[in-house]
């Protein structure tokens, strides 16, 4: 570094050059690995590209997008995406927050709970899906059926019945990712200043009032952040559902992400799959934009 005899080079310019030398390699990698493919995706979504009928390939304009309007499977996947994302995120935050508030009151054993909570997070979603499909939800011998049979509710086809299957995949997702909300909110709660609560006590605020007027506003940024991250995960959830139900039965658990995948790689209609992926991309971007706007407006 530092060549002493070139006084014309200003400090700021030197810092800028160093910064760019550090940042540009990563920037190029990101451009190459994410943005260029994205442009290619957009281009593909305008093509008729069906591997099972390669002789029909060609430019389709907005044909793929127009086709969605009359595609009931698309609308079904859109509704399922909303239900899946909404339900799992709300469940994760409510369960995670309640549990964190409870655990905070326990003087001992918090560490043990943290270890337990790490477990689902580190597991591969595909393994989680397989686990639930076999050991937990399988008819007759799965853990859930063992319980329902014992208490006299009988055996159910948890992944075979369309309604139950949707509930099941929501339960799987919630099981795996609630620990994330729990751990983040527990850590946030632990950083809250105790003197605020002491002051509130002196002001004769009850437990519920303290939660509503002090805790909740203080942890709102963390909750918003958890909601954003959990929505992103839910929107692109794949492996667990794919392993547990494969999107079925029929298309009962086929969220948009799965529909785009199955269209592209099961039915090999890559053009239409690409346009479905573009829709999912727009939804993801729109939601993250809205959430960040919301977050900034609050702070």
């Amino acid at each position: 570094m530092g060549s002493g005899t070139k006084p014309a080079r200003s400090l700021a310019a030197q810092e800028r050059r160093f910064a760019l030398a550090l940042f540009v390699p990563a920037l190029l990698v990101l451009l190459l690995t994410t943005t260029v493919p994205l442009v290619y995706l957009g281009w593909t979504s305008l093509q008729k590209l069906d591997m099972s009928m390669p002789w029909l390939s060609g430019f389709a304009g907005l044909g793929n997008y127009a086709k969605m309007g009359g595609d009931p499977r698309f609308w079904n996947s859109l509704v399922l995406t909303g239900v899946y994302t909404g339900t799992t995120v709300v469940l994760q935050v409510i369960i995670g927050l309640s549990l964190a508030l409870l655990v905070l009151q326990i003087p001992k054993g918090q560490g043990l709970l943290r270890v337990a909570a790490i477990l689902p997070i580190v597991l591969a979603p595909v393994v989680v899906g397989l686990f639930w499909r076999t050991l937990v939800l399988a008819p007759d011998f799965g853990l859930v059926d063992l319980v329902t049979r014992t208490v006299g509710l009988g055996s159910h086809n948890w992944l075979g019945d369309p309604q139950l299957a949707l509930i099941s995949v929501i339960a799987i997702h919630t099981w795996q990712w609630t620990p994330f909300a729990f751990l983040v909110l527990l850590a946030t709660l632990a950083t809250l200043p105790p003197d605020v609560y002491e002051a509130a006590r002196l002001d004769r605020a009850g437990a519920w009032q303290r939660f509503w007027h002090i805790t909740l506003p203080l942890i709102r940024p963390a909750i918003v952040m958890v909601v954003i991250l959990r929505m992103m995960t839910a929107l692109s959830a794949f492996a667990a559902i794919f392993a547990a139900t494969g999107g079925g039965p029929g298309s009962a658990t086929e969220i948009l992400n799965l529909y785009a995948y199955r269209t592209s790689f099961t039915e090999l209609n890559l053009g239409y799959g690409a346009s479905l992926a573009m829709v999912l991309l727009s939804i993801t971007m729109a939601i993250s934009y809205l959430m960040f706007r919301l977050r900034r407006a609050r702070s």
Binding site: G2, G4, P7, R9, L11
Partner: peptide
């Protein structure tokens, strides 16, 4: 120290202009 660039003006050490020099120099 050279940690902050000037918007205008000059800095001399032993009558040598060091305005543009890095801190380490």
């Amino acid at each position: 120290a050279g940690l902050e660039p000037v918007s205008d003006g000059r800095v001399f050490m032993d009558e040598v202009d060091v305005t543009m020099r890095e801190p380490g120099e």
